[in-house]
């Protein structure tokens, strides 16, 4: 694609892309720190995540304002309009991922006792899967790779499967031993947060597909 003849417009679109890209890096960092919390319960990680969340919120506002200005002043169409539309929606999803990271790290470090290593390992595996999907979908956004976006969306199934199996294991354990109900519930909520992050990644994939193809697609069609 050529550059805009109107340099001011070009610069604004570049700014939106850059902000989104920096925002995605911060969110990815939040997520990987949150995964560390599950394993080590180190409250330093949690504090860093809270601080990064302030940055994420600022990025979301900056993207929103920049998009609004571009819509008002430049009346974007076609690829430019799709970029603005995508940026607005994706930044919202990123911000939600950030919130989940904050929430789940809090739960991880405040959970009263440790669960057995089997559960921690299963949660970590779910976390790794979610992180890799999030990474893949961000990558698809910035490289404009529609196949990658579709693939990341398909992997929602893998996340769901891991989540359900953790849920089942925890419920079984809690049935057998009611002293772990409180901690077990905390861990269910952590797993739920990870699963929700996967959903947000799926929403981003949907937007990336629209951004590239100009059409929204059904997940069902993408799965086959």
């Amino acid at each position: 694609m050529k550059e805009h003849t109107d340099k001011n417009f070009e610069n604004r679109l570049t700014a939106i892309r850059d902000q989104l890209s920096e925002m995605s890096a911060v969110v990815e960092k939040q997520l990987s720190l949150a995964l560390n919390c599950i394993k080590s319960k180190d409250s330093d990680y949690s504090i860093t995540i809270q601080n990064l969340d302030l940055q994420v919120d600022d990025f979301e506002k900056a993207v929103r304002d920049e998009c609004f200005e571009v819509l008002t002043l430049h009346r974007p169409v076609a690829s430019d309009l799709r970029l603005v539309f995508t940026a607005l929606k994706v930044s919202k999803e990123m911000e939600r991922i950030g919130d989940h990271c904050r929430g789940l790290s809090n739960k991880a470090i405040t959970s009263k006792s440790d669960l057995d290593p089997e559960i921690i390992e299963a949660l970590s595996a779910l976390g790794r899967s979610v992180l890799s999907v999030v990474h893949e979908v961000f990558d698809s956004l910035f490289t404009g790779n529609i196949e990658k976006a579709k693939e990341s969306w398909r992997r929602d199934l893998e996340i769901d499967k891991l989540y359900k199996s953790i849920l089942k294991t925890l419920i079984d354990k809690m049935e057998k031993n009611d002293s772990i109900i409180e901690t077990g519930t905390q861990h269910i909520l952590i797993a739920k947060s990870l699963e929700r992050i996967g959903d947000h990644a799926g929403n981003i994939a949907e937007e990336v597909i629209f951004n590239i193809s100009g059409q929204y697609q059904d997940i069902e069609k993408i799965r086959v």
């Binding site: 694609m1 109107d6 076609a78 690829s79």
Partner: peptide, 9 residues
């Protein structure tokens, strides 16, 4: 796309 978005290069 280039024309309607104002990329006249």
């Amino acid at each position: 796309n280039d024309y309607i978005t104002g990329r006249f290069g």
